[in-house]
Design a protein around this nucleic acid. Structure first.
Length: 770
RNA sequence: AGCCCCGUGGUGUAAUUGGCAACACGUCUGACUCUGGAUCAGAAGAGUCCUGGUUCGAACCCAGGCGGGGCUACCA
C-alpha cells in the first residue's frame, strides 16, 4: 500500500480505485509461456504484477501458464518457472491457472462469434491467407470462404474440434475488416488445427487457440482487472478489446496496458538467442553464471533482494530504454555488503617471506567477519606465519603516482596482522618476481603502529602453510558490445573473456570450509559465491558475483592509449534530432482530405478564422459546429473564437472529458466577445467557460466577477507571500526568474483566481524587483 | 508508404487541476577509514527533440516537422 502514483500504471490503478471501475479490485497476472526459462526481463514484469497486487488490499496476482502451443511447451519449464518465481520472493497462493484449462470455454466463445456472424471457418491454405492479408501499405482482400453461412461455419468448426481434419485444413477467423489499417485486425486467425500432444491435455484437443483469442478471454475468465504486457503488444490491444466487446465476456472487462520491456546493456533477452547460446555450447547451460536467466543469476550468486531492488530502481514507463549495467552492479553490491562475511583470498599469489619473523613460529589473529560500519557480529581465525602470499597487483616495483601498496623500501599493512617493509625483490630467470623479502614491525601487532606513524596502504594476505587452493571464476559481460541484440550475429560479439577461471588462487582456511551457496566478500576484490553445483567436499568453486567498486584509478596514461575494456564500447544510440528542415508549412488545405472538411474550412476562413486554426477545426465536426453557431455572436471576433475552440474548448473536452453537447454556441460567442472587449480577463474567461460547460448561463456565471481586486489588495497578498518566502525572494533577485511563476500562482490561488493574472504578474515583477 | 506507441542531464525515471525541472545510478571533489569498499559532505552535468502558436506563465495544451520503436506466424 505504500507507493501509489509513482509511475503511470500505479497512477492509473489509483484512478480506477477512485472511480470504482473494478469495485476496488486489483487483479493482475503473470502469464509466461512454458517454453523457456525466465530471465531478468521477466523479473521486471513479475515484480510489477506481483508488486501491484501486494500493494493493494485484497489484491491478487495470478500465475497463468499461457500454454496454447502444444509443440513448444513442456512440463519441465512449468516447474522451473514456478521455482524461479518463488525464489524471487513472490507467491501466487491458490491462484495458479492454465490457459489450457479454458479450451472448452474458448471453443464456446468461438461458437458465439460464428453465430453472431463475427467469425468464419477459412479453408484457405496458410500461404493463401498470407497473400490475401496485404501489407502495411496495401489493404488485404477477402477470403473466398469469408461469406460461408453460419450453419456451415458451425458444422465445420464442430468437425474441426472432432478431429475430422488434417492440420492446416481449416482455421477459425474473426470477421472484421481485411482493409483495416491495423494489420492485427485483418480477420485474425483465432483457432487452428494441430494434432499434437499437449503436455497437460494430452491428445484431447486437435484444435488450439491462438494468443489473441486466448489471452483476453483468459483474463476475463479469471476476473483480471489490469492486464499488463510489453510494448510489442500495443497493436494487439485492439483485438483484445474487440473480442471482449463482441462476445458475452462480462463487464467490467479487463484492460490491457503496455509498458517498456527491460533492456540491459551487454545482455540478450531473446528466448531464441538464449536458447542458441545454450544449444551451441557458448555457455554451459541455462543456469550458467553468465546467463541473464534467473537460474543463471542465482547460480552466479545474485540475490533475489538485489534483483527486486534493481527492478525498483528501473521503474516502469512506456519509453524504450536500455539500463546501465552499473545499476545492476550497484543493486547487487548494496545487498551483498550487508550479507557477505569478509574473507581473504589471494587471486594471483606472489610469495612473501618475512625475514625477521621467527622460523617455525606462527600465531592466529581473530579477525571480524564484518567491518564496523556493517555492524554484524562474528569473527574468524586468521593464521599468520613467516611465509605468506599477497596479490601480485598489490606490489609494484615501479609504482604509478598515487600507488598505496607495496613498493621497494616501502611499508604496507597486512590487514589484521603487522606492518611490513619490502626489503628485496627476488626474480626468476624470466625476470618475473618470484619472492618478496620483507621485514615486519613487531610493535605493530594487530595492525596499529606503536609510534603512531601513518601507513598508507592496507592489503590482504594468506598464510602459506594454511592457504587452501580454490577455483575462482571471474565473470564479465557475455558480450563485448553494449547492444548485442543489434549485432548482425550475436555470436560474433561474444566476449571470449566472459569467464576467466583462476587456477592458482588461494583462500584463508575459513573460506575454504564454507558451504556451497554461501556468499563471501573477498576483501578489496569483490563479492563471491560458493557455486552450489560445482563445489565439492574437498574444494570450493567461487563465482565472482560482482567486483568491488574501485575508487582508485592509476593516473591517466600519457599517450592517450585508453584501455580497451569490453565495456568501453558505447551503445550505438542515434544522434539527437536537430529538427531542422522545418521548411515551409504549405497550404493548410493540403492536409484536408474529405470534401466536407474543405467546405467547413472555407466557411470558417471566410468568417475570420486564421487558416491554421481553421484546418484544425475543420476536421472536428463538434468544434466546427460550435464555431458556426457562435461566430455570429462573437461581435466579429471569429479569429478569437477559433482560438478559444482549439485551445480551450477542445482541451476541456479531450483532457477533462467535458461534455460539449450542453454548450450553447451563442453563449460561447458572447463570452469570447466579452473577453475581447476587455470585460473579463482571459483567465476569468476560462472560468466562465467551465461554468458554461456545466450548464450555467453566461449571465449567471459572470455575476460578481466584475469587481476585480484593486492593486492594493494584490500588493497585500504579494507582500505577504514575500514575507513568508524570503529565500525565494532572494533567489529571484539573484536571477532565478522562474520563481515569478511561483508568486503569481500562489497569489492567484489566495485570491481565488479573481484578479487578472496579467496585473498580478506586473505587480509581482514590480515588488520583487525593488 | 499505412496504422500504433515513444522522445526530460551520460543512463533510468519524477515533476500531484499549466506555477521553483526533482530523485537514483554513473562521474568528479573532499572527509573518514586497518577494504582505494561502506559511510558522510559537496560539485559538475539537462532548460525538457526542433520550429511556431495559445497563455501573465508551457516539460505539460495546439499545429507542423525531426528522430526512435512496434505491426504484414495457423508464435507469444
Amino acid at each position: 500500500m505504500e507507493r501509489t502514483g509513482t509511475d503511470f500504471i500505479r497512477s492509473m490503478i489509483s484512478r480506477d480505485l477512485e472511480t470504482g471501475k473494478y469495485g476496488g479490485r486489483v487483479v493482475t497476472r503473470f502469464p509466461p509461456e512454458p517454453n523457456g526459462y525466465l530471465h531478468i526481463g521477466h523479473a521486471k514484469s513479475i515484480c510489477l504484477n506481483f508488486g501491484l497486487a501486494a500493494e493493494h488490499e485484497g489484491g491478487r496476482c495470478h500465475l497463468r501458464f499461457d500454454d496454447t502451443n502444444p509443440t513448444t511447451e513442456d512440463e519441465t519449464f512449468v516447474e522451473a518457472i514456478k521455482a524461479d518465481i518463488h525464489w524471487l520472493g513472490f507467491d501466487w497462493g491458490a491462484h495458479l491457472y492454465h490457459a489450457s484449462d479454458y479450451f472448452e470455454r474458448l471453443y464456446e466463445y468461438g461458437v458465439e462469434l460464428i453465430e453472431k456472424g463475427l467469425a468464419y471457418v477459412d479453408s484457405s491454405t496458410e500461404k493463401e491467407i498470407q497473400d490475401l492479408r496485404g501489407s502495411v501499405t496495401e489493404p488485404g482482400r477477402n477470403s473466398p470462404f469469408r461469406d460461408r453461412s453460419v450453419e456451415e461455419n458451425l458444422d465445420l468448426f464442430r468437425r474441426m474440434r472432432a478431429g475430422e481434419f488434417e492440420d492446416g485444413a481449416h482455421v477459425l477467423r474473426a470477421r472484421i475488416d481485411m482493409a483495416h489499417p491495423n494489420m492485427v485486425m485483418r480477420d485474425p486467425v483465432l483457432v487452428r488445427i494441430r494434432h499434437a500432444h499437449h503436455y497437460r491435455r494430452g491428445n484431447d484437443w486437435p484444435i488450439y487457440p491462438l494468443y489473441d483469442f486466448a489471452h483476453c478471454l483468459s483474463d476475463s475468465i479469471e476476473g483480471i482487472t489490469h492486464s499488463l504486457c510489453t510494448l510489442e503488444f500495443e497493436n494487439n490491444r485492439e483485438i483484445y478489446d474487440w473480442l471482449l466487446l463482441n462476445t458475452s465476456a462480462p463487464e467490467p472487462r479487463p484492460e490491457q496496458t503496455e509498458f517498456a520491456r527491460l533492456n540491459l546493456e551487454y545482455t540478450i533477452t531473446s528466448k531464441r538467442k538464449l536458447k542458441a547460446l545454450v544449444e551451441e555450447g557458448h555457455v554451459r547451460g541455462w543456469d550458467d553464471p553468465r546467463m541473464p536467466t534467473l537460474a543463471g543469476l542465482r547460480r552466479r550468486g545474485v540475490t533475489p533482494e538485489a534483483i527486486r531492488s534493481f527492478c525498483d530502481m528501473v521503474g516502469v514507463a512506456k519509453a524504450n530504454s536500455t539500463i546501465d549495467l552499473a545499476k545492476l552492479d550497484y543493486a547487487i553490491r548494496n545487498d551483498l555488503n550487508y550479507r557477505a562475511p569478509r574473507a581473504f583470498a589471494v587471486l594471483d599469489p606472489v610469495p612473501v617471506v618475512i625475514t625477521n619473523y621467527q622460523e617455525g613460529e606462527s600465531e592466529v589473529f581473530d579477525a571480524p567477519s564484518f567491518p564496523p560500519d556493517v555492524g554484524k557480529p562474528g569473527t574468524r581465525s586468521l593464521p599468520f606465519s613467516r611465509d605468506i602470499y599477497i596479490d601480485r597487483s598489490d606490489f609494484a616495483e615501479d609504482p604509478p603516482k598515487g600507488y598505496r601498496r607495496l613498493v621497494p623500501g616501502g611499508e604496507v599493512r597486512l590487514k589484521h596482522a603487522y606492518v611490513i617493509r619490502l626489503e628485496r625483490v627476488v626474480k626468476d630467470g624470466n625476470g618475473d618476481v618470484s619472492l618478496l623479502e620483507c621485514t615486519y614491525d613487531p610493535a605493530s601487532r594487530g595492525g596499529a603502529t606503536a609510534d603512531g606513524r601513518k601507513i598508507g596502504g592496507t592489503i590482504h594476505w594468506v598464510s602459506r602453510a594454511q592457504a587452501v587452493p580454490a577455483t575462482v571464476r571471474l565473470y564479465e559481460p557475455l558480450f563485448t558490445v553494449a547492444d548485442p541484440s543489434n549485432a548482425e550475429d550475436f555470436r560474433l560479439v561474444l566476449n571470449p573473456e566472459s569467464e576467466r577461471v583462476l587456477g592458482g588462487a588461494v583462500v584463508e582456511p575459513g573460506a575454504a570450509a564454507v558451504r556451497p551457496g554461501t556468499h563471501l566478500q573477498f576483501e578489496r576484490s569483490g563479492y563471491f559465491f560458493a557455486d552450489p553445483a560445482d563445489s565439492t567436499d574437498g574444494s570450493v568453486v567461487f563465482n565472482r558475483v560482482v567486483g568491488l567498486r574501485d575508487g582508485w584509478k592509476p593516473p591517466a596514461l600519457e599517450s592517450g592509449e585508453a584501455e580497451q575494456a569490453p565495456r568501453s564500447a558505447s551503445p550505438s544510440r542515434p544522434p539527437p534530432s536537430t529538427g531542422e528542415v522545418a521548411g515551409d508549412r504549405g497550404d493548410p488545405r493540403d492536409s484536408l482530405k474529405a470534401p466536407e472538411h474543405l467546405d467547413r474550412y472555407d466557411a470558417m476562413v471566410a468568417a475570420g478564422a486564421p487558416e491554421g486554426l481553421a484546418s484544425n477545426l475543420a476536421r472536428d465536426a463538434e468544434l466546427a459546429a460550435l464555431f458556426r453557431g457562435g461566430e455570429p455572436e462573437s461581435d466579429g471576433h471569429g479569429g478569437a473564437l477559433a482560438k478559444w475552440l482549439v485551445h480551450e474548448v477542445g482541451r476541456a473536452r479531450d483532457e477533462s472529458g467535458a461534455n460539449l453537447e450542453d454548450l450553447v454556441p451563442q453563449a460561447l460567442g458572447r463570452l469570447v466577445a466579452a473577453v475581447e472587449a476587455g470585460r473579463f480577463s482571459h483567465h476569468q474567461g476560462r472560468g466562465l467557460l467551465e461554468s458554461l460547460l456545466e450548464g450555467t448561463t453566461l449571465e449567471d456565471a459572470a455575476k460578481g466577477l466584475g469587481e476585480a481586486d484593486d492593486d492594493g489588495a494584490i500588493d497585500d497578498i504579494l507582500s505577504g507571500l514575500m514575507d513568508s518566502n524570503p529565500d525565494k525572494v532572494e533567489a529571484y533577485r539573484e536571477g532565478k526568474e522562474g520563481l515569478l511563476g511561483f508568486f503569481v500562482g500562489q497569489a492567484l490561488r489566495q485570491a481565488d483566481g479573481r484578479p487578472d493574472p496579467k496585473r498580478v504578474s506586473e505587480r509581482a515583477r514590480a515588488l520583487l524587483g525593488s
